[in-house]
C-alpha cells in the first residue's frame, strides 16, 4: 500500500483513501463537436502508457475529495511529486525521489 501526499491536505496518507483517475493533462477540448474523429479518438482512448515517470490523476476520495495530479514512476511505483489540479506539468529534470 502506497503513501500519497495530498497537495490540498498537505498530508501524506495511505493509498486506501485515494482512487486512481487515469492519465493527467488530457484536456477535454473546449468544443468537442469541432473535433475530428481522429482527434476525438485520441482524447477518448489513446494514452501514453509510459514506462517510467507518468503524469497521472488521483482523487483524495475519502478525504478532502479533491482531484489532483501526480508524477509516479511506473517501474519503481514511487511518487516523484503531487500537485494541485490546474498547476503546470512539473519539469521531470527537477524531480528526485525524496520518499525512498
Amino acid at each position: 500500500m502506497l503513501l500519497i501526499h495530498c497537495p490540498y491536505c498537505s498530508e501524506t496518507l495511505p493509498e486506501v483513501e485515494f482512487t486512481y483517475a487515469g492519465e493527467a493533462h488530457i484536456v477535454r477540448p473546449e468544443t468537442p463537436s469541432a473535433q475530428s474523429d481522429a482527434d476525438w479518438e485520441g482524447f477518448l482512448f489513446l494514452r501514453s502508457n509510459v514506462r517510467g515517470p507518468h503524469y497521472e490523476r488521483w482523487r483524495h476520495l475519502h478525504g478532502c475529495g479533491r482531484y489532483f495530479n501526480a508524477v509516479r514512476d511506473t517501474v519503481s511505483d514511487k511518487f516523484l511529486t503531487t500537485y494541485k489540479a490546474g498547476e503546470p506539468r512539473p519539469d521531470l529534470s527537477t524531480l528526485t525521489v525524496t520518499q525512498k
Binding site: V16, E17, L61, H62, G63, C64
Partner: peptide, 10 residues
C-alpha cells in the same frame, strides 16, 4: 478532525 476511511467506509 478528518474525513477518512474506517473499515472500508467513509
Amino acid at each position: 478532525g478528518r474525513r477518512t476511511l474506517f473499515d472500508g467506509s467513509t
